[in-house]
C-alpha cells in the first residue's frame, strides 16, 4: 500500500539535484533579464560595476555553475537598481548645486 508512495518519494529524492540545477538556471535567466532591463533603464547613469558583475554572472552561467551565476546576478540587480535610483534622484537634485540656478 505504501509502495507507490515510497517509489514516488525515492524518485523525487533522486531527481532533486537535477531539479534544483534546472531551477537555478530558470531563476538565473529570470534575474539576468531583470538586471538587463533595469541596467538599460538607468540610461546614461549605468554603472561599470553592474556591467562587470553582469558579465561575470554570464560567464559563471556559461560554465554551467548556475548557483553561482544566480548569486552574482542578484548582486548585479542591486547595483542596477541603485543606479536607476541615482538617475531618478539626480534629475531632480542637480540644480541645487549648479552655478547659475
Amino acid at each position: 500500500m505504501y509502495k507507490p508512495l515510497l517509489i514516488l518519494t525515492a524518485s523525487l529524492a533522486l531527481s532533486l539535484p537535477a531539479l534544483s540545477q534546472a531551477g537555478a538556471k530558470e531563476d538565473f535567466n529570470e534575474v539576468y533579464s531583470k538586471v538587463e532591463s533595469t541596467h538599460n533603464q538607468a540610461g546614461t547613469y549605468q554603472w561599470t560595476t553592474t556591467a562587470n558583475q553582469l558579465k561575470a554572472a554570464k560567464e559563471a552561467a556559461d560554465s554551467g555553475d548556475y548557483e553561482k551565476a544566480l548569486e552574482m546576478a542578484e548582486q548585479a540587480l542591486k547595483y542596477a537598481e541603485q543606479s536607476l535610483e541615482q538617475r531618478k534622484q539626480q534629475q531632480e537634485k542637480w540644480p541645487a548645486v549648479a552655478i547659475g540656478n
Binding site: 546614461t44 547613469y45 554603472w47 561599470t48 560595476t49 547595483y79 541603485q82 543606479s83 541615482q86 539626480q90 534629475q91 542637480w94 540644480p95 548645486v97 549648479a98 552655478i99
Partner: peptide
C-alpha cells in the same frame, strides 16, 4: 550639457562639478 556636468554618476556618486566646481 549643463545637466550632465552637474549630475552625479557611477557607483562613486560623483559629478564633474563634485571635483571641478566644489
Amino acid at each position: 550639457g549643463k545637466e550632465f556636468y552637474y549630475t552625479r554618476r557611477g557607483q562613486l556618486n560623483f559629478s564633474c562639478a563634485s571635483c571641478h566646481v566644489q
